[in-house]
Design a protein around this nucleic acid. Sequence first.
RNA 1: GUGAGCGUAGCUCAGCUUGGUAGAGCGCCAGACUGUGGAUCUGGACGUCGCGGGUUCGAAUCCCGUCGCUCACCCCA
Length: 426
Amino acid sequence: MDASTSKSIQPIRAVKGTRDLLPRDVTLWQKIEDEVRRTFGAYHFGEVRTPIIEPTALFARSVGEDTDIVSKEMYTFLDRSDESLTLRPEATASVVRAYIEHSLFNEGGVRKLYYIGPMFRRDRPQKGRYRQFYQIGAEVLGSSHPAVDVEVLEMLTLFLRRVGLRDFTLLINSVGDKNCRPQYLNALREALSGVKAQMCGDCQRRADTNPLRVLDCKVPADQPIIEALPHFIDYLDPECRAHFESVLTGLCAREIPYEIKPRLVRGLDYYTRTTFEIASGVLGAQNSILGGGRYDGLSEMLGGPPAPGIGFAIGEDRLVLAVEAAGALKPGHPLTAYVAWLGEAAGAAAAKLTRELRAQGITVETGYEDAKLKKSLGNASRLGAGFAIIIGEGELASGLYQVKDLTTGRQEAVEPARLAEYLTRA
RNA sequence: GUGAGCGUAGCUCAGCUUGGUAGAGCGCCAGACUGUGGAUCUGGACGUCGCGGGUUCGAAUCCCGUCGCUCACCCCA
């Protein structure tokens, strides 16, 4: 307790919906991100880092003016030069903007890009939902071939298994394209006009504003009505249908389990054809850990050349919750060794040893002041050290340091020159 | 934006119904044990009881307001 803490000044707290990730949390985040780099890298995706602030128009044009994200959840402000800027609520628009801005389409072939970073939406916070949240996403631009969809989903399922998730279901659907979607929407509106009066208040509103969202309603009483509404896959034009079937065939060939969910819809306007989602049961109401899909017209919407694309975004905060619940990815000893010393002469030797071990990349801690051995070993134990190295008068005289394995309790004398090897073998 | 629950020690919480000197466990510090941790025992430090106002001789407890957190709706990652 800091006795100097002022009682009269109110401490400043983190902004609502934002949070501090402390070292004990971050170790897990880093392991997940290491796995992203390993797995996505193996599929030849390159990392991009785009700005967190973007022109507001970028999201209005891509995500859609009438979506909840754009109409009521963005952090938008006027810059000092009266330019409207927005803290990015998602990153696909930024990646496509960068793809166009740097003419990456001129380099031939498809471009595979991924990103990890914070996004901002002014929702009401709850479990798995924050105003500053993190997404891990990947995009493939430059091909509309269904094999791309399949490869993306293959990479995704491999990644999830590698971070320890086992029980998850890939939900997949097709939402058609600009040719067949209007016909489906007409059919849906027509069907809704006859039944919406019997539905919940939210559905009556959605039936007019965004009929696709009616399909996502969770009110039990509405389910029989929703079951009877037309399915998008029955309205796909021949090209979209062939694409969808090809994707499903590819998934089967790779033994990737999936479930067709005709009612799967996405909240962003740019999606076309393949859409998908993976949910986890441990997350509470916000159970979707990732979502994504194809967005073949997006580049043109942003003033670029035709560049069909597909991508996904994983909610990293939610993934961390799911990985924790799965109990995988246990970190090892964050601290390899603690150097315990007795007396000033040993202190000098300890400082030298500590410096040398650290220079070799071994994580080592030591005490700043002379302390009883009991206290030093207690510190070592509390800090989770794998080993304690004991240096006192006897060790200085013999030239051999006592090394105690704190897991087994076994102890032996080791030459200082051999210590680095001794600590890192295993 | 709407609703509900909860704010008491560093952490997890009890105490509130029926107002009467702020508690427990864990953690932390020290000692028992003057060079051997995790166990045990003993002792110790740390609290504007979220904040403001009201009722009362007296409020953690009752009332009003307010802020914060959490969960849910909504929406989405």
